[in-house]
Design a protein around this nucleic acid. Structure first.
Length: 122
DNA sequence: CTTTTGACGCGTA
DNA sequence: CTACGCGCCAAAA
């Protein structure tokens, strides 16, 4: 666990993303209700070793894996594929198909999240 | 205290 | 389609 409350909050949300689905940095930030997409990216970068956070399920708004992801975005795509996610020919994911709908309302309330309705996925 | 630096996102051109 | 510009805000220096 991190010693940064905000990071732990972010990690808690990411842990809710089911296998076979993905969420964007901005979406996670909106669910937490604090910070910005950059903050989420920074939190992922700061993940301690031995964590149980499915970081590979967090991607950018274009449906692509982050270029700066630990040197190998290739591995990230492999993991996602093994979870059932399908990549298009340009190596992007169709968020309307694999985008996560967010945690249910009970979870949001139980975890002190101030999420907005659900404008994601147009 | 201030400055720099991003696993980002969106509007514009 | 690509390329910038700028806002965003937490951490580290």
């Amino acid at each position: 666990m991190s010693q940064r409350p905000l990071y732990d909050h972010i990690y808690a949300v990411v842990r809710e993303i089911p296998a076979g689905r993905v969420a964007t940095y901005g979406q996670v930030a909106a669910i937490v209700g604090r910070g910005t997409p950059r903050t989420v990216g920074y939190a992922m970068h700061a993940l301690p070793s031995g964590h149980d956070v499915p970081w590979q399920r967090v991607i950018n708004r274009q449906g692509r894996t982050s270029p700066r992801a630990d040197g190998d975005a290739v591995d990230q795509r492999e993991i996602l594929r093994s979870e059932g996610v399908v990549f298009r020919s340009d190596q992007s994911i169709d968020l309307t198909c694999f985008g996560w709908s967010g945690p249910d309302w009970d979870w949001l309330e139980a975890n002190d999240c101030h999420a907005v309705p659900q404008p994601w996925l147009k």
